[in-house]
Write a protein that binds this DNA or RNA. Structure first.
Lengths: 108, 108
DNA sequence: TGACTATTTCACACAAATGCGAAATAGATG
DNA sequence: CATCTATTTCGCATTTGTGTGAAATAGTCA
């Protein structure tokens, strides 16, 4: 009965993931985190933005469920929480070249 | 040597795909088109927006390479140009339930 | 050609996102 | 406790996205 309502709700949630990834700086962050966790200071160096901007980008990604954070000592470390993102970006790259990509497992 | 410039450029392009999908109405359109092409009039009925809004959403999706359009007679039909999108949304749904999904082929 | 239909483009008002620097918070260390 | 460091939050200015209704475009058919 609430199937329609929850469908819209889930769509909203999925849209939030896409929207979070739909910004060059945030996409760059996620790509960088694909090879392992980083502290915020490293990400500030990576993208060319101020601390407050990077922090808010990380907040957006975390709220969408794309990233997880963990505080260790003075620093906060972020890592990817949604492994299928990198598979999908690989697909996008391949598609833009007209290629086909085989992917064994999408989500973990 | 222009590797950094083109990396940023490709990232911009991928971000455009994500941004295009990062809106509930556009995501709904893409989901609907997953089961086959539709004319604009059908999509206007589907999402609860006016013609001009739907038309612009379609323009955004087409510009990002997510959709293709074809004019037949008076009507314009849209269809998905990026098959991996539905695999990815399936992954998102599964991930939100803590599940794992097997995907055989991602891009075609 | 003129009327009709499907779709896009335009101009505008309003909401949301973005980046910045200053201030606030929180943990470590002397 | 005072201070230093890493990060987040806040207030603000600017830009970008969104929806609407009116006008423009394009194809079809009498």
């Amino acid at each position: 009965m609430k199937k329609n309502a929850s469908a819209a709700q889930r769509r909203q949630q999925r849209a939030a993931v896409f929207k979070a990834l739909g910004h060059p700086a945030r996409l760059q962050i996620v790509e960088e985190l694909g090879s392992g966790e980083r502290c915020v200071c490293e990400l500030v160096d990576l993208v060319g933005l101020g601390w407050s901007a990077v922090s808010r980008h990380l907040t957006v990604l975390k709220a969408a469920g794309v990233l997880e954070d963990e505080k260790r000592g003075l620093q906060v470390f972020y890592k990817v929480a949604l492994p299928c993102v990198s598979s999908f970006t690989a697909c996008l790259d391949a598609a833009s070249k007209g290629e086909t990509v085989e992917v064994r497992r999408c989500c973990a």
